[in-house]
Simulated assay, not measured.
Amino acid sequence: MKNLFFFDSMITPKIITFIYWLLLVSAVVSGLSFMFGGYSGMTFGSFIGGLLIVAGGALGARVWCELLIVLFKINSNLQKLSDSSQ
């Protein structure tokens, strides 16, 4: 508990993991609703578009979350380097 109150331990990477899974689920749901939604008829373009939404959303969510995690890894490594030099 002390680590949490004095910012020795970061909780944001755990939150980012949760947000990644939420973004992934939303990309799949959005893509499926685009593919099989109640539009003016099922067309091949809407099916391909839905697949692109799923793939692009999953890739975009992954890249965004990885970039955020990299920042926290850099912070962790800098703290280790600082502790070892003292």
Rank of each mutant, 00 (worst) to 15 (best):
M1V: 02
K2G: 07
N3R: 15
N3F: 03
F5L: 08
F5C: 08
F5K: 00
F6T: 05
F6I: 10
F7D: 13
D8I: 11
D8H: 12
S9N: 11
I11K: 08
P13Q: 14
P13A: 15
K14L: 13
I15L: 07
I16M: 01
I16H: 07
T17A: 11
F18I: 12
I19Y: 04
I19R: 07
Y20D: 05
W21K: 14
L23H: 09
L24G: 14
V25T: 10
S26L: 07
V29G: 04
S30G: 08
G31R: 02
G31I: 00
L32W: 05
L32I: 08
S33V: 08
S33L: 13
M35W: 10
M35C: 13
F36R: 12
F36Y: 14
F36G: 08
Y39E: 15
Y39C: 13
S40R: 12
S40Q: 15
G41I: 12
G41L: 15
M42H: 11
F44L: 14
G45I: 14
S46W: 12
I48M: 01
G49F: 05
G49C: 09
G50L: 00
L51H: 02
L51W: 00
L52H: 04
L52F: 15
V54A: 10
V54P: 04
A55P: 11
G56L: 01
G56Q: 04
A58Y: 00
A58P: 02
A61W: 07
A61S: 06
R62H: 07
W64C: 05
W64G: 01
W64D: 10
L67C: 01
I69T: 06
V70T: 01
L71T: 07
K73Q: 03
K73R: 11
N75T: 06
N75G: 03
N75S: 05
S76M: 09
L78I: 10
L78D: 12
Q79M: 08
K80V: 07
K80S: 04
L81R: 02
L81G: 13
L81W: 13
S82Q: 14
D83P: 04
S85P: 02
Q86N: 09
Q86S: 02
